[in-house]
């Protein structure tokens, strides 16, 4: 972790040497993310509720999905470049360094310009909380769910990276899970089909990013009627997924070293 922080700091200083380019990318990233908010605004200019949730609640869910997603995106999404590293041969160079490959890839060419998205999600969450008036007795869950969300999204990026050891020629597949996961969690899960919700509860635990703990914060009954205890299980789900992701990553690296692709 210390090595990772030192590495991204070095890359940040390198990026700061081109301030205009950096500012431009930051603005561009923030504007792109702003479009998602514009989309929510357009949806709610046509309706007052979506999937049984009003605009403040949807903004709350958007914020509690967007904040961990954008943090994970900022810090670890470089792992989806693994197939580029494999094809360019730079992965070999990483294997002769005495640091874990995940840390090296995540830190490689780090730029902080995606930080604009973190800020944007935090603002949406702040606005939602100001409108919702959540009691302090339930608000404690918010930092917990953001932390668990970061772990869950980071694990999905690691799983996507591990998948690229197999699908080196089709790295775009992982976008369906990483960015797809980010998109899915932006809206209340009631809008999706029941099978999809079961899938993201029991298989790929995206429901534990903001849906289950979010129901607790919002003080709402589960529209799908799933057990009440699920809303406190985010830490367990995050830990389990992180373990799976760590094994998958190791298996991917081992496969690379035994096939020499």
């Amino acid at each position: 972790m210390r090595v990772y922080l030192l590495l991204i700091w070095t890359w940040t200083r390198a990026a700061a040497r081109y301030p205009t380019s950096f500012a431009l990318m930051t603005v561009a990233g923030t504007v792109t993310a702003g479009l998602e908010v514009a989309a929510i605004w357009i949806v709610f200019s046509n309706t007052t509720t979506l999937g049984g949730f009003d605009v403040s609640e949807v903004m709350f869910l958007y914020g509690t999905a967007g904040l961990p997603f954008s943090v994970a995106d900022l810090l670890f999404s470089n792992t989806d470049r693994i197939s580029q590293h494999i094809k360019a041969g730079t992965f070999d160079a990483m294997l002769v360094r005495p640091v874990g490959t995940f840390v090296q890839i995540a830190a490689d060419r780090f730029t902080p310009h995606r930080a604009g998205r973190v800020l944007q999600a935090a603002i949406v969450l702040g606005v939602a909380l100001a409108r919702l008036d959540v009691p302090a007795s339930r608000a404690w869950m918010i930092p917990v769910m953001v932390a668990c969300g970061i772990v869950i999204f980071t694990s999905i990026w690691a799983l996507g990276g591990a998948l690229q050891f197999l699908l080196t020629d089709a790295p775009e597949v992982t976008n369906a899970f990483t960015y797809g996961g980010g998109t899915l969690t932006q809206y209340p899960l009631t809008v999706y089909g029941a099978d999809l919700v079961r899938g993201v509860t029991y298989v790929l635990p995206l429901a534990f990013v903001n849906w289950q703990p979010g129901l607790y914060v919002l003080g709402r009954a589960d529209p799908m009627g799933l057990p009440y205890a699920l809303r406190f299980l985010s830490p367990a789900a995050a830990a389990a997924l992180a373990v799976v992701a760590a094994f998958a990553w190791r298996a991917g690296v081992r496969r690379y070293r035994s096939t020499g692709s």
Partner: peptide, 20 residues
Amino acid sequence: RTTLWWDLPLRDSFELVRLL
């Protein structure tokens, strides 16, 4: 092929190696 980083000045590449 190089194990250094294309976009960075040599000095920064060395700094990264130092950290690694």
